[in-house]
Structures are given as structure tokens and as C-alpha cells.
Write a protein that binds this DNA or RNA. Structure first.
Lengths: 248, 248
DNA sequence: AACCTTATCGTATTTTTTACGTCAAGCCCC
DNA sequence: GGGGCTTGACGTAAAAAATACGATAAGGTT
């Protein structure tokens, strides 16, 4: 065995969005595709890393191209380094397309959270990309299903520990929407009365004074995430001990 | 900007050990070193990835070389991809040493947990490596201090969520040792009586029947980690909801 | 024997989680 | 327009977990 020199580095991003009901992920058509009918013709957006580019920069670039957004919540998760994860015609296509001669492609998985609004959807529609319900995805190109699964695992864990949920919601949202998001992502049922108590008790939600309109029930109050209050709370907790319990 | 082709992938491992008092990390002399007096002459063990080798395999290889151990607890954390993280004479040395012509080295950080026993220490001593108290480390070669800091952060988080602590302790240990480990890594004080209640109440510790010998106080009972009980508990919790709270 | 350290058991208080009752506000349908 | 339905919003009580801390025992040291 010798050092591997003809290798390439890429990033692939699982971009999550929430439409109020279920969790969606952004998928694009693979550019190389011998048969349009292939079940795995969809993939996560991704790209090769450029010269003098860090991985986070490459991921941001991919995100900007795919969604038109900057300042997206973006987090690195795992690396997928199976020497055979890209091979055969797939690898040939990559070499042809880029005019290079690589023997393996190691990819770094990222996941991103976006606020699904009309502008983003218009942009992605225009690009030919689509938002697919995560639950419904059976297979993807190459090992992208595996990357997506890893992203989901990371998202679940992070949702339980930090307020990333707000990255998936519009700036103003109702408590019920927040609850639905947690329930959908974590796959659990949540008692609305206790959820409200807990979330309001944390002091991280600031009421806007605006109410829902045109809904077939008592209209709910819109809230915003109070980032400053959250940071204060984190600071206070850090002084004691750490997360959650184990304080003593 | 164009695709980066002349790049290399490496792994660097922060190998942690616990001697009963403080957390240590395994450091080796950098092989390239123009001045032996340099303050940053120590580094984390690492290596370039080989052809047809996955990253976890490369990390295992590094670990086996550095500690003589297989079956080590090993976890990927972050990637360090700053194009300039290795450059100048450092980069030249790498090219000369490996007989290659790389322009940048992207490294994947791993952290590993080992049981610090006499055999491991003899092995690492023999290799010229050393176990250094984490708190005391001021600087390391290249960006290895940064990698170490990241590893510490990951370790802290993981200690709070999963029973990785036992990877750092001998097979048989006292509750006080376990408590000291938590206190040292997390930097908190822990009430022994409550700690004991909590940890024994979890049912993850199996008493061995053996007692400490030759200590200047009432000898403590040795326990072992009951992995099977832990797995059962995890399963039971997963059925309800998820980690900790948020169950409803 | 007096003293110190640590193990080990226990109890009381506080905080958090969980379950669930109740009513109000809006829309829909007949 | 009134009954039915859904969801918001407030509240209370029981259960569980976290925390503080008292008391005794078992070893060694001085």
C-alpha cells in the first residue's frame, strides 16, 4: 500500500426545511444519469472542494448555489471515506466532467437548516431542485441515503440540546408550529399544555402581539426566538456546572 | 480557482487516558524538527491516509502504532481544512519524507480513549511518546492544539450523554475513581453521596465483591460496567421518547 | 487511643416532569 | 344562530428526579 495521491475531496449537504407539517430535504437531479428512470436519480447537493478553499467555505458555496441563501445554519457532521463509495461510470463521469484523473472521492457531510419560505421555494423550483419529505425517501444516488440518515441522527440529537429548531421556522411562529416541528423531527407525541409551559417557562420566546388570521380555530399568538435571553441562560448554566443535570 | 488535486488526507488522534487524578493525552515528538528546543516540538499522533484505506481504518492504524492497542474506543470529530494549516518547511518536509508533491494537507481529527495501564505506558515509553496532563499543555505543533481543544469539547459532551467514562477506567474500578474522572474532565465538583446514589441507581454498575487493599481509609468495593444492562436501559428509553426529558 | 479520610446508608427539601381538568375563541355545518 | 369541532391558554396535583446534608462504619496514621 502506498500513499493515496489522486484523491478528491467533496462536500455534500443535507438541507432541511420544515413546511409546518413534515421535515423536508432538498434534492437535486444527479447530473450524470444514463437512464432517466433510475430510482436513485436524486442526490444531495454537493461539490468538489476548490483550491484554497476550506471545507466550510465549500459547503457555504454549495448552499448558496442550491438555495440562493447566505447565512444559513450549517454544520459539519461525518466524513464518508469508503474507497469505493464513488466508482465505475460514476467516477468516470466525474473525471470527464472536471477534466481530472481522480481515483477516489472522499466526501464531508454537512447538514443545513433553512426557513422554507416562498422565495426559497421559487429559487429551488427554478433550479429544478425539489423538497422531498424525509420519511418518504427510499433511495438516493451513491451513498447519499446513508449521508442523509447520518444528518437526521445529528439533527435529532441537536434538536434536544440547542435551539436549532428556530432555524427551521419563520421569524414569527406559533407555539403549535414549534411543537409540530419537534414532534415531526423526533417522531414523538407532545402534550401541548406541557410543551407550552416548558417553552414559555424557559423565557426564550418573545410574544409579538400579532395573531394568526383566517384559521378555523382560536387564532394563536405569534412568538419570536429571543436569542439574547437564550445566551444569558446558557451563560448562567455554564457557571454552575454544565448541561442539564450532573450539577451537584 | 480550480479544483484542488494535489492534496493529501491525514488523520490525527487525541488519545486520552486517565491516571486516577487527571486527564492525560498522548503526545509524540514531531519527526521534522529543525530546532530541538522548539516549544511546539510535540504533536498528536497521526498519519497520512493510504490507498484503499478508509479514515477509520487509518485512525485505527495510527492508534495501534502509537499504543500497541487494538479495539480502542475511537471517534471521529472534526475536519481541519485550512489551506494553510500545513505549509512552508513543514509541508516541504512532508513531501520530502513521503516522496510526494502535495500542496495542502487536510486532516481529520479523531479522539480515542484508552485504559492507562502498565502495559500501555511501557509501550508508549518505549516508543518515546509521553502522556501529558491536558491542563498543562500550552502549545503543540501546527494546529494540533486546536485539534486537542476540539477533542476535549467533544469528550466533555459525550461524557454527559453516554457511558464513555468506562473506556478510560480499568475494568474494575471504585465509585470514587469514576467520580474523580467525571470531576476532572468536566471540571466540576461532585457530591459523593449523590453521585453514588445516581450511578448505582442506574443499575449499570455490577459489584465484583473485591475490595481495595492497602489504602489509608475504609476500602472501597470494586465495580464493573454492566454493558448489557446499559443497552437494555437505552432500548427501554428509546421506546418512550428519547434522551432524558422531552418525553411527555 | 485520638484523629483523619473515605465508604456507605439514609432522610428531607426542592425542582422538574408528567398527567390531565377546564374554559375560551374562532370556524363550519345544519 | 346554535351545536359541534379544533386549538389556544391557564391551572392544579401527583410523580419523579435532583440536591443538600446528617450519621455511622471501616480502615489507616500519629
Amino acid at each position: 500500500m502506498s500513499l493515496q495521491m489522486n484523491q478528491s475531496l467533496s462536500v455534500d449537504c443535507a438541507v432541511f426545511g420544515f413546511d409546518g407539517r413534515s421535515l423536508k430535504v432538498l434534492l437535486v437531479e444527479r447530473r450524470y444519469c444514463d437512464s432517466a428512470a433510475r430510482l436513485d436519480r436524486l442526490k444531495l447537493p454537493g461539490a468538489m472542494i476548490l483550491e484554497n478553499e476550506t471545507l466550510p467555505a465549500a459547503a457555504s458555496r454549495v448552499l448558496a448555489e442550491a438555495t440562493g441563501l447566505r447565512e444559513i445554519y450549517l454544520k459539519q457532521m461525518e466524513i464518508f471515506s469508503d474507497p469505493d463509495r464513488v466508482r465505475g461510470e460514476e467516477l468516470e463521469w466525474i473525471n470527464r466532467y472536471h477534466g481530472i484523473r481522480t481515483e477516489r472521492v472522499v466526501t464531508v457531510g454537512y447538514y443545513a437548516l433553512v426557513k422554507l419560505d416562498a422565495r426559497v421555494i421559487a429559487y429551488t423550483d427554478d433550479k429544478g431542485a425539489q423538497w422531498v419529505e424525509v420519511e418518504a425517501i427510499q433511495r438516493l444516488a451513491m451513498d447519499h441515503k446513508q449521508i442523509l440518515s447520518a444528518a437526521l441522527t445529528h439533527l435529532c440529537r441537536e434538536m434536544l440540546q440547542s435551539p436549532v429548531a428556530f432555524e427551521l421556522l419563520p421569524r414569527k411562529f406559533t407555539i403549535r408550529e414549534l411543537q409540530n416541528l419537534y414532534a415531526a423531527v423526533l417522531g414523538i407525541e407532545i402534550d401541548n399544555r406541557n410543551f407550552r409551559k416548558k417553552i414559555l417557562g424557559s423565557g426564550f420566546l418573545a410574544p409579538t402581539g400579532e395573531y394568526e388570521q383566517g384559521v378555523a380555530h382560536k387564532p394563536a399568538l405569534y412568538y419570536m426566538f429571543d436569542k439574547a435571553a437564550y445566551k444569558r441562560a446558557v451563560k448562567a448554566k455554564l457557571r454552575l456546572g454544565f448541561i442539564n443535570n450532573w450539577r451537584y
